[in-house]
């Protein structure tokens, strides 16, 4: 008979526990709770003030605010369709351009890269994420646009068949500003974000998983496509959606390069506008009540679009987890 078995837990001296709900513990709880609810209150406050501020526009134009692309500050007629289309088109194109590159960078860095290059490329990607958007705008306007006009836009515009569908969607002024240029700049901006997140996700894969796959005789390509990528699918969707969210709301860089004309963009080289660029352009000088109300209403529309994107991301992630 050993005595050890007879020692009950109660006999072991434990440090005195701070009782729940008293003193520091309670204060900490309250602090955390108020931090969380503060954010929620702020969010609610923003939605409510946007709705109140934009109400005159919804009242004056009704559903037409969303379907008309007529934006005329002189006649005081405002329609959001042009800006909404511009926002969706540029963000989607940006995502299409950025996605393969970002995944390529992340996969290369984690699975294929010689260690000596890994740090350099990894740091470069992170630095790219740290560049302020106004710098992208200036670079886009003064460096990228002239180059793009000369080496991409002009050759394309000159080689398309007159009267064809391709001529229509590549019509425009050959100076490098427009929907496509804005999308490319946006792609460069969201690329490091998606690449860095995807890289982190790939690094979380336990080595055993990968090693087992190799052990079973898989090639590198098979490991990446059949093991690594499916493993991080959930997180990657989240990263992509957050990138899309950033593209939707990006303001300064787009304002510089998109050409800023209201109305439906009819070609990829046409100038257009996004919700954020329209607000940035006009809010400071909007003195008429309906003008500023319409801009605030645009803000609400952008909020709803971004919210929808994030909700979709949640939904996709949720489905992945339960599957």
């Amino acid at each position: 008979m050993t005595t050890a078995a007879d020692v009950s837990a109660a006999d072991v001296p434990t440090p005195p526990r701070i009782a729940r709900g008293t003193g520091l513990d309670r204060a900490f709880e309250i602090l955390c709770f108020s931090a969380a609810t503060f954010l929620l209150t702020a969010l609610g406050g923003i939605v409510i003030s946007l709705a109140i501020g934009g109400w005159p526009a919804f009242e004056a134009f009704g559903f037409g605010f969303f379907t008309s692309s007529n934006w005329d500050p002189v006649q005081e007629i405002y329609g959001a369709a042009g800006a909404v289309t511009g926002t969706l088109v540029t963000a989607t194109l940006a995502l299409l351009f950025a996605l393969p590159l970002a995944f390529g960078i992340a996969i290369f860095l984690v699975e294929l890269c010689p260690p000596i290059l890994r740090r350099t490329i990894g740091t470069a990607v992170e630095l790219l994420a740290g560049i302020p958007s106004i710098v992208y705008g200036m670079w886009g306007l003064f460096v990228f646009a002239p180059w793009f006009a000369k080496h991409v836009q002009m050759p394309i515009m000159m080689s398309v068949e007159p009267g064809s569908f391709w001529e229509k969607i590549t019509a425009g002024v050959p100076n490098g500003a427009g929907i496509l240029s804005a999308s490319i700049i946006l792609a460069i901006m969201i690329l490091p974000f998606i690449a860095a997140t995807t890289r982190e996700l790939l690094l979380t894969i336990p080595p055993q998983v990968r090693e087992s796959a190799y052990g079973l005789g898989s090639t590198t390509f098979e490991v990446i496509t059949k093991v690594s990528l499916p493993y991080i699918r959930t997180g990657a969707i989240g990263a992509v959606m957050l990138g899309l969210g950033r593209a939707l709301g990006e303001t300064m860089a787009v304002t510089f390069i998109i050409g800023n004309s209201h109305g439906f963009p009819t070609s990829i080289f046409a100038s257009g506008s996004t919700i954020a660029s329209t607000i940035a352009n006009e809010f400071a000088e909007a003195t008429d009540r309906l003008h500023s109300a319409s801009l605030i209403a645009l803000g609400l529309v952008l909020f709803v679009i971004t919210f929808a994107v994030l909700a979709l991301a949640r939904l996709l992630i949720g489905r992945q987890v339960h599957a």
Partner: peptide, 11 residues
């Protein structure tokens, strides 16, 4: 700010 019949806008 007006509804420009043509052209593009620089900031």
């Amino acid at each position: 700010a007006v509804k420009w019949p043509t052209g593009l806008g620089g900031k």
